[in-house]
Design a binder for these strands. Structure first.
Length: 173
DNA sequence: GCCAACGTTGGC
DNA sequence: GCCAACGTTGGC
């Protein structure tokens, strides 16, 4: 998937039980949070080559449950430039990757890179996956709606981004 | 470089 | 918990 200069809106996935938007809100009281642990090259490329400070991000909870369905729960913002993902080099971290250590020893550019995220807003009512699907052609082509699309970081068009935010705000009224 | 086996993701 | 779809690995 090609990275284009007009990409300024994104969607990141996280399982709520691993790291929810409430966790992001809490952790951002002390500044932005490195979006560590992404171990997919395409997702890495989006963060490394596409994301720029100030870009807005839909925060999606994946692997939902009936109590907490999958969907967009709020908005985050890219807070800094891409940097090395230190968790890949830490043997005690669950996202440790020995190959990243080999990269470093070989003097290669970092294998895993991430950006910092900051909390912007939580929707008063989440925009569930079923809500997104109900939008039909209005959100046509939105990557997160494509079956088999498992990327945890992906671009979102401005139009789609704005529509999802609109839905999130409307839902609260 | 092919491709089968495997592990993971994520909706249901 | 199931399983389809995908990315990665490793034998050849």
């Amino acid at each position: 998937m090609e990275i284009k200069s007009e990409h300024k809106h994104w969607l990141v996935k996280s399982e709520a039980k691993c790291y929810s938007i409430d966790d992001l809100k809490r952790d951002c009281k002390n500044g932005a949070v490195p979006w560590e642990g992404i171990r997919n090259f395409q997702a890495r490329n989006f963060m490394r080559d596409g994301m720029r400070p100030g870009d807005l991000v839909l925060f999606y909870h994946s692997n939902g449950t009936p109590k907490s369905p999958a969907g967009v729960y709020g908005i985050a913002r890219v807070a800094g430039k891409p940097h090395i993902d230190e968790s890949a080099l830490n043997p005690k971290d669950e996202h440790f990757d020995p190959k990243a250590v080999a990269y470093k020893k070989a003097g290669k550019s970092p294998m895993w890179v991430c950006v910092d995220m900051e909390f912007v807003a939580k929707f008063s009512q989440p925009v569930y996956l079923s809500d997104l699907k109900r939008e039909g052609s209005r959100l046509g082509g939105m990557l997160v709606l494509q079956t088999g699309q498992r990327l945890s970081v992906m671009p979102v068009s401005k139009t789609h981004f704005e529509r999802v935010v609109q839905l999130g705000e409307e839902a609260g009224k």
